[in-house]
Structure formats: structure tokens, C-alpha cells
């Protein structure tokens, strides 16, 4: 057989074999992969509602049922893509809101929990970020996320922000949050994301009239 034709046929054949193999494995495991992603998100939301304390071990397979029972999604007609949840079994005005914004390197996305009974942040979790490990990457450490817990957001500062990120260790007023030394870009990005997420939610909610 002509050498050139053999080469082309061989390349086509081996490509077909491997494409078939890879797509076969992909379709076998695709359901499991998307279930894993859903579970990971649901875990974050449940954690923000305080339903997954560290001493409570819940098997991953039990997460979707727990999520369905304990949370109820809220939709705003003006923003159909908006993702927001409230507790399924209590009337507490606790809202978990999805956010996404530009970080220093990559998009930062996650969820923030707002308590409208006393107008404070009750928690913050990140589901995805690409910040520098050891510097901006510290945002995913529990200690950093805890800096937001209990911060009031009802008043607007003179600079237009509800919460300001300040130099690490210098937060004195309730409307200030410690930033990260060596990661000013990340700290500024988080400040912007948190403030705009809160502003947007309060606007949609119009002082609680909608809910």
C-alpha cells in the first residue's frame, strides 16, 4: 500500500480508537462528576446555614436530601440567574447568596450568608479562586473567612463602602475587616465583591419588602 495513504489511515484509526476510549470513560463517569460538583456546592451552602458543624459527620450521599429539606431557593423575577437560598425549616431571615467577581488573577466565586434579623454577615465561603498560594490564597483559610463573621452591613461609610478592608491587624471599627499583608490586590478584590454582593442583594430585596 502507498506509504502516505497508510500513514493517514493509521492516524485516523488510532485517533478514533483513543477518542472512543476517552469519551466512553467520560460518559460512564459524567453523572458521578456532576453529582460531585453539586454536592460540593450544597455542602458549602449547608455549612453557611450552620447545618454542617465540624463535629457532625454527614456522608456525601446524604447531602442532597439534607439540602432539599433544609434550604429553600429564592428567585427574583428581575434577575432570573440570581442564586439565593433561605432556611427551609425556620423563618430566620438568613440568606445565602452566590457571588462571582474578578480576583487578582482569576475569578473568585463563592457564597456569602447575610443575617437580616440583625444585619450582620454570618459567614463567607469560596468555591473557586486562583489567588497566589500562601498570599492571596489565604482567603480560603478558615481564619480569614472568620474575619467577616458578625460584621454589620446596614450602614454605609463616608467612602461609600459598607465594609472596608484595612491593613492586616489594624481593623478597629466594626465596619473594618483585616486584609491580607502581601495580597493587596486580592484584599481589594474581596472588598469590591463583598460590598457589591451586599448592595445588590439589598436592592433586590428592597428593605425586606420582597420577602
Amino acid at each position: 500500500m502507498n506509504e502516505k495513504i497508510r500513514t493517514v489511515l493509521f492516524t485516523l484509526a488510532i485517533t478514533a480508537v483513543f477518542v472512543f476510549m476517552v469519551s466512553g470513560i467520560n460518559s460512564l463517569l459524567a453523572d458521578k462528576i456532576s453529582a460531585n460538583r453539586t454536592i460540593a456546592r450544597q455542602k458549602v451552602i449547608l455549612k453557611l446555614f450552620g447545618l454542617l458543624p465540624a463535629d457532625r459527620q454527614v456522608d456525601d450521599t446524604a447531602i442532597p436530601a439534607l439540602f432539599a429539606a433544609e434550604t429553600s431557593p429564592i428567585s427574583f423575577p428581575s434577575q432570573p440567574q440570581y442564586e439565593c437560598y433561605r432556611p427551609g425549616r425556620s423563618s430566620a431571615k438568613l440568606f445565602v447568596i452566590a457571588f462571582k467577581g474578578q480576583g487578582f488573577w482569576d475569578n473568585i466565586s463563592g457564597f456569602i450568608a447575610l443575617n437580616l434579623d440583625n444585619n450582620t454577615i454570618s459567614g463567607l465561603e469560596f468555591t473557586q479562586h486562583g489567588e497566589t498560594p500562601g498570599l492571596g490564597g489565604r482567603i480560603s483559610e478558615p481564619e480569614f473567612k472568620a474575619r467577616f463573621a458578625g460584621k454589620p452591613f446596614s450602614t454605609v461609610r463616608s467612602d461609600g463602602l459598607r465594609l472596608k478592608m484595612v491593613a492586616e491587624g489594624s481593623a478597629k471599627n466594626p465596619d473594618e475587616v483585616d486584609g491580607i499583608t502581601g495580597a493587596t490586590g486580592t484584599s481589594n478584590a474581596i472588598e469590591k465583591i463583598v460590598n457589591s454582593t451586599i448592595n445588590n442583594f439589598l436592592k433586590l430585596n428592597e428593605g425586606g419588602n420582597n420577602l
Binding site: 476517552v22 470513560i25 463517569l29 458521578k32 460531585n36 460538583r37 460540593a40
Partner: peptide
Amino acid sequence: AAYVIFIKIVLDAYLPE
């Protein structure tokens, strides 16, 4: 590439974190 994609898919399915 085929084997690496295989690893990636298996990790996504069984060790997502």
C-alpha cells in the same frame, strides 16, 4: 493525552477535592 484525560476524569469522579 488519552491516559492523562483518563486520570483527570477518574480524579474528578472519585477524588474531587
